[in-house]
Write a protein that binds this DNA or RNA. Structure first.
Length: 558
RNA sequence: GCGGAUAUGGUGAAGUGGUAUCAUAGGAGGUUUCCAACCUUUUGUCGUGGGUUCAACUCCCGCUAUCCGCACCA
């Protein structure tokens, strides 16, 4: 980062704070690492970005919106693998109270201490008893799992249950699969979106909005039949060259469809969602030349993922991952199924029923039971595998390696036709997951322009109008002669129109007011002047061009 | 978590063992026929806790936060 850039970052940050976009949270109490406020201007920006995101994904037509709790019982995140995979095992030196990671302390004594479980670590720590890196004392406390999730107790006293604040919104959707499946009349594919807060007790939050302890996430969980043929229309992005970083390959510029056809993106729905995500970002005003699509290395992927592509955005902090499209396979549904015994399956009907004709042997329960007693079940299994032309008596070997003699009286012919009209399977999940705060940061970063105007520094936020916090700024040229009243009337009409936010500003010179509006990215400023009083026309000034057009008040609001 | 730097009005800065200055921003009033003009006036500050001292924004220690490396990390 050059000196100029870091100066720009400082000026941007102080402007964002001064003008009410972003600020450290709880600042009067000294603030708290990794926690940020969206201020009086930023709050509106955030809700607009979120609304655009929701609208964007609802376009799919088979997606619904849900909202699940952030407080999540232990068992849910244990099943999802987060309790195990999201933890570090910590131990504390009893003499200097310095906390260390147990696996790090044991690196010299085990090829891969990271793979040890809690008990193995405890034992190895006891037998090795390494000295403390801080004070050399070899006296360690119990090893405890220090999880990156915020833990809490749900309820109080003896009835309290262990729980966490969710590290991702996904699990709430995935555990709702059975009700989503009913809602969609048991037909895949379908998806559910959720926008909400996620929590990670990061060891070292950094870089302003980039790594937070409480953050806004927006996720789609899209449930698919892994065997269904999908032919997505990727050609709609054929006139857009995107930058790709496939695993183990050099960066290349190509179209999404070409990269998919070349086999680098394994699932067509992943490709489609990457296109939609790209479209969403550029729609917010993110500079497309500062977007790249990067595939995760094998060892980089989260514990649940089969394949994962990130979209990274270049900004003041370098290339930052702002969203990921992960192919989670059947991992999550299977895990919750195993943990709860609840069905997480979907039914796939065959195009034609499969008829299976069986013409062989089965056991005669009345004789096999008394004869073989506890082995009867294994005998039945073995007998049903015998060919039709088997002669009895015969010796068969059971699954437990015991050999028994089966007589004619133990068996009877088994002739039947089984008709299967379909089968049950665990759906796969494709998950586009967006870091809303990081995306907002880059929208701000890319929109922020430092210009020079008549020798003076001049700041404009060229925010896309779809996410601008304020749509119109209304100025009376002078606050007198009725211009103030007319301006207030226009302001009120805007404010009572759903979806439009306007700001009245009557203080300072007109130039100063334009400058203030430009700084927070108001796309249009409307000025009421003397002529307005006569014919109810006003001037509309465009933020980016500075051009003014005169229009009638009534044509402003349809 | 480790190492280094930093913390003064809303923002950006200066400064001193004797309660602080400048710019800019904000409010009120005036003035001006459209891009940070001008005049008057006003608001507001030494991150936090402890120690040394007659006296601490200043010196010392802890804490918190911010920034930069390293480590960690979706």
């Amino acid at each position: 980062m050059s000196e100029d850039d870091s100066g720009r970052l400082e000026r941007l940050n102080s402007m964002l704070k001064r003008r009410g976009f972003l600020a450290p949270a709880f600042e009067i109490h000294g603030g708290a690492k990794g926690l940020y406020d969206f201020g009086p201007v930023g709050g509106r920006l955030r809700s607009r970005v979120i609304q655009s995101w929701i609208d964007h994904w609802l376009q799919l037509g088979n997606v619904v919106e849900v909202a699940c709790p952030a407080v999540t019982p232990f068992a849910v995140l244990e099943a999802s693998g987060h309790v195990g995979e999201f933890s570090d095992f910590m131990t504390t030196c009893k003499s200097c109270e310095e906390a260390s990671r147990a696996d790090t302390l044991l690196e010299a004594h085990h090829p891969n201490p990271d793979d040890l479980n809690l008990n193995e670590l405890k034992q190895l720590l006891q037998s090795v008893n390494p000295s403390c890196p801080a004070c050399d004392s070899p006296d360690w406390s119990e090893v405890v799992a220090q999880n990156l999730m915020f833990d809490t107790t749900i309820g109080s006293g003896k009835s309290g249950r262990a729980g966490f604040l969710r590290p991702e919104t996904a699990q709430g959707i995935i555990t709702s699969f059975p009700s989503l499946y009913r809602h969609f009349r048991e037909r895949l594919p379908f998806g559910a979106i959720q926008v909400g807060k996620g929590y990670r007790n990061e060891i070292a939050p950094r870089q302003g909005m980039i790594r937070l302890r409480e953050f806004n996430m927006a996720e789609l969980e899209y449930f698919i039949d892994p065997e269904a043929e999908v032919t997505p229309n990727l050609s709609r992005w054929n006139d857009t060259n995107m930058a790709f970083l496939p695993r183990g390959k050099d960066e290349l510029n190509s179209t999404l469809e070409q990269v998919y056809l070349d086999g680098m993106i394994h699932h067509p729905t992943v490709a489609q969602f990457l296109g939609m995500a790209y479209e969403f970002l550029t729609g917010l005003g993110i500079n497309s030349s500062k977007i790249r699509i990067r595939q995760h290395d094998e060892n980089e992927m989260a514990h649940y993922a089969k394949d994962c592509w990130d979209i990274e955005i270049l900004g003041s902090y370098g290339w930052i991952e702002c969203l990921g499209v992960a192919h989670r396979g059947c991992y999550d549904l299977e895990q919750h199924h195993k943990a709860t015994g609840k069905s997480m399956h979907a039914r796939r009907e065959f195009s034609e029923p499969i008829l299976t004709t069986i013409d062989a042997w089965t056991v005669n329960g009345a004789t096999v039971g008394p004869t073989f007693k506890a082995l009867a079940g294994a005998v039945k299994q073995a007998v049903e595998e015998l060919p039709k032309d088997t002669q009895f008596p015969t010796n068969i070997t059971l699954s437990n390696s015991e050999t028994v003699t089966v007589e004619q009286e133990h068996v009877k012919p088994n002739q039947k036709t089984i008709k299967e009209t379909g089968e049950w399977y665990i759906p796969h999940v494709i998950e586009p997951s967006f870091g809303i705060d990081r995306i907002i940061w880059h929208a701000l970063d890319h929109a922020y322009q430092e210009l020079e105007k008549e020798g003076e520094n001049y700041t404009v936020m060229r925010l896309d109008p779809s996410i601008a916090p304020i749509d119109y700024a209304i100025f009376p040229l002078f606050e007198k002669d009725g211009m103030d009243n007319l301006a207030m009337e226009v302001h009120q009409r805007f404010c009572s129109t759903s979806g439009i936010v306007s700001m009245y500003d009557g203080s300072g010179s007109i130039g100063r007011r334009y400058a203030r509006a430009d700084e927070i990215g108001v796309p249009n400023c409307i000025t009421v002047d003397h002529q307005s009083l006569e014919d109810r026309t006003v001037t509309v000034r465009d933020r980016d061009s500075g051009e003014q057009t005169r229009v009638h008040i009534d044509s402003l609001i349809s």
